[in-house]
Amino acid sequence: MNLQIKQEDQGNTHNLYIAGEVDAYTAPQLREALLPLTGKESHETLVHLGDVNYMDSTGLGVFVGALKSSKEHGSTLKLRGMTSRVQRLFEITGLDEVIDIEDAKGGSK
């Protein structure tokens, strides 16, 4: 039940590297890091999820909140490199059709 977040900025692009588990306990931590970034007009936020080994629906909720915030503030949100397990969650919930998700990596399927 641990989450590490690392942020690297290049101009108007914010890279968030997330590692660990995103669940009800760690979701507030992710929300705190993510929401201020999506609130900046015409900035781009890239969330790297390759090292996230578990996510539950509360974690998905953070991305739903971030998506709404980015639409409201005219910023861009992209998710990158999620494992097949996490990708499946985004597919089942239909969120893959409304959130910009780049190439999946790893996973068996």
């Binding site: 929300r31 629906s57 998905l60 909720g61 953070v62 739903v64 909140g65 709404k68 915030s69 919930t93």
Partner: peptide, 8 residues
Amino acid sequence: VDPNMFIT
């Protein structure tokens, strides 16, 4: 609902 909330 709150922006972070959803229902399946």
